[in-house]
Design a protein around this nucleic acid. Structure first.
Length: 284
DNA sequence: AAAACCGACAACCGCCCCGTC
DNA sequence: AGACGGGGCGGTTGTCGGTTT
């Protein structure tokens, strides 16, 4: 019952208000517990943090989305205990925190796909990203501007001054230049279905380091769920108490009983979980 | 050793599309 | 049918670390 109610509220929150008739509940004064029943500007400019995300913020966001999903980006930071714009949370999650994110160097196949697709589509980074599982449009865009575009320019200029064919040895060429020497007739279909080269992921972290990290995160997450419970209780005690307790037990059973680096626990379908830097750097 | 420079990339901003009311 | 808001997208900027002078 409470679970269904919570889901109904979360769905209703997508429209930024609670439809009590649809919920068919006897919570007469429920609205009085919701401080913001009207739409508010997309991003309140006051009091919202900007700039680089801290490991603590990352943990809050991951803990919340792991448990509840991203039902409404604009409302999410409030419930997750983050003083961030919803858009900022979305960006952080989509580009760095969500499962299946691939980090590390681009493979030759990936760069060829980017080059070919950019020739065909232009700056449609999202469309290009669809062809590169695990790569974000932002990462592809950055890689294009910092590596591939430069390489293409040089390739162009070198082809114009074609007399100079001896580029003083291949050791002087950049990666991008070398990539461009490869055949550009790449079968996208083949590449889409082929496994991509491995990249650093959770599995790369040593078990000992992640075990100790888990120990340091336990108290923190417990605290965060206490905060969440307080926030939920502002709406309705019974409703959110059950959610909180369910969440608490869920976390303890499914989160705390394993390390953060246990891929089968966090992402049972084999996804990886990566963020900037390493866990040793950020969460130790 | 320190300042200047440069490259890489994380993050923000603003616009646009689409769904909902 | 039009207004509104959320989310997605692309361009741009800011920051940080490494390299060069």
């Amino acid at each position: 019952m409470c679970h269904l109610l919570r889901l109904a509220i979360l769905q209703s929150s997508n429209q930024s208000y609670i439809n009590l008739n649809k919920l068919e509940l006897g919570v007469q004064d429920f609205q009085s517990h919701i401080p913001e029943m009207v739409r508010t500007p997309c991003c309140e400019k006051t009091g919202l943090k900007k700039g680089a995300w801290t490991p603590e913020e990352d943990k809050k966001l991951v803990a919340y989305i792991t448990r509840y999903g991203h039902w409404n980006w604009r409302e999410l930071p409030k419930f997750a205990g983050l003083s961030r714009c919803g858009k900022s949370c979305r960006l952080r999650w989509m580009n760095y925190l969500r499962p299946n994110i691939r980090r590390g160097n681009f493979s030759r196949e990936e760069e060829e796909i980017i080059i070919n697709m950019h020739q065909a589509l232009g700056n449609k980074w999202a469309a290009i990203a669809e062809k590169l599982p695990g790569r974000t449009d932002n990462e592809i865009k950055n890689h294009w501007h910092t590596n591939l575009k430069k390489g293409l320019k040089q390739e162009l200029s070198s082809s114009e001054s074609k007399s100079d064919t001896s580029l003083s040895g291949s050791e002087c060429k950049t990666n991008s230049e070398q990539e461009l020497e490869l055949s550009t007739t790449v079968s996208l279909q083949t590449l889409e279905s082929s496994p991509l080269s491995p990249v650093p992921s959770l599995s790369d972290f040593s078990s000992s380091s992640t075990d100790s990290m888990f120990a340091t995160n336990t108290d923190w997450l417990a605290h965060e769920y206490t905060v969440l419970a307080d926030r939920f209780a502002e709406f309705n005690g019974d409703l959110w108490t059950e959610s909180y307790e369910a969440g608490n037990s869920y976390i303890q059973e499914n989160f705390f009983s394993h390390t953060w680096a246990d891929p089968e626990t966090l992402f049972p379908h084999g996804e990886s979980f990566c963020t900037y830097g390493s866990y040793e750097d950020n969460y130790m």
